[in-house]
Design a protein around this nucleic acid. Sequence first.
DNA 1: AAAAACCGATTGCAAAATACAACCAGTTTT
DNA 2: AAAACTGGTTGTATTTTGCAATCGGTTTTT
Lengths: 138, 138
Amino acid sequence: MKAYKSFCPQYLALDVIGDKWSLLIIRDMMLEGKKYFREFLASKESIATNILSNRLKALEAEEIIYKKPDPDHKQKIVYLLTEKGIDLFPIIMENARWSLKYQPVDQNDAKEAQAILDGGPMKIQSIMEYLKRIHLDN
Amino acid sequence: MKAYKSFCPQYLALDVIGDKWSLLIIRDMMLEGKKYFREFLASKESIATNILSNRLKALEAEEIIYKKPDPDHKQKIVYLLTEKGIDLFPIIMENARWSLKYQPVDQNDAKEAQAILDGGPMKIQSIMEYLKRIHLDN
DNA sequence: AAAAACCGATTGCAAAATACAACCAGTTTT
DNA sequence: AAAACTGGTTGTATTTTGCAATCGGTTTTT
């Protein structure tokens, strides 16, 4: 059992995603289709192997992601999102909306994000349903 | 000038709010009307004075908040939100929505958050306009 | 079959962020 | 005049993050 400092919604969310790396890994899973350790390692922000390893373990412990062996490659491990993880997508998009308004976002990234936001809530929902089809094993 | 690792929307948002404390301070400003150092200090999660001091400085440097002397008390300092800060409210509400679904949120906090979420985007917008009237000096 | 490259990591060490407790000078209240 | 309150700072300990090298096992290339 975990010793929470409070049971406020904000605190309980930050307890899981309140760090510099977790949402970037989830971003790569959602928006770039990454699923292997080495793919995450090659992110724009160049995460270190030990930190990536730690974050993946923490996200797995929180049931944001889960892993399974790659059927085609005995050594590879496939990292996939749970429903709890996929439901972080609206947070990611609100982060993006805020950054587009106030931060020096790269123009290509901005166009991609703006395209989703222009689609409104329905666009976000359809992306989440797409992610569920790919990540959840039914 | 700041040395960013990337110019991705997620990274640029996490650069500002990707820590355990910043959003909790902003939550207290938005939802509990706190504006003094000692009020933030008395948060549910009991932040330390030096960390609070650091976070307030960082948030001020990012122009999320600003401060001004209290007109009625020479020693007091009033901390207020900028528009950039008030625009973080949708992120806070998406965090809350996610926590309500997946985390062991306190029942009273849950009711308060749920009431806002049930009001839909218009409710969120009206709270933001209320915050603008209180925090922005026009 | 041997060598090289690739797989998800772990280990050791340095640096930075966070946490705790004590304290401080100036201001206001008692 | 004393006590309590204001927004902090300082020192120290612990935890988290960052960097570089390395590892045993697997797959691919030669």
